[in-house]
Amino acid sequence: MKGRVLDGAALVLADGDSVATALEDLDAGREVRDGDRAVTLADDVPFGHKFALEPLSAGETVRKYGEVIGRTTEAVAAGEWVHTHNCESTRGRGDVAAAEVER
């Protein structure tokens, strides 16, 4: 597998990524070690879903594959599940373009 496996439970695809991908269904409260640091999951994180490896402020870019995959819509603590409820795309936003036209 490309990337770095944490405790056999999650995968970090590239150095500098701010999220890790769960390799199995992970329960809230589980501690996942990443070298010197440890992250305690604040939420249940289903297989294939992501959690924050570090605290992210609102509007901060989220990195996976060593690339930007979106930005947070609110502050996210380390160990929180990162998905559509707190992270959004910055691309293909015809809705934003339409709202700007109306303004």
Binding site: P46, H49, I69, R91
Partner: peptide, 21 residues
């Protein structure tokens, strides 16, 4: 908003959050 279709609801259930991802 491309997000309605990309990623699709199924993709999202599978853990994909944004079209970039």
């Amino acid at each position: 908003d491309l997000r309605g279709a990309q990623p699709s609801p199924g993709n999202q259930e599978g853990g994909l959050t944004t079209i970039e991802e």
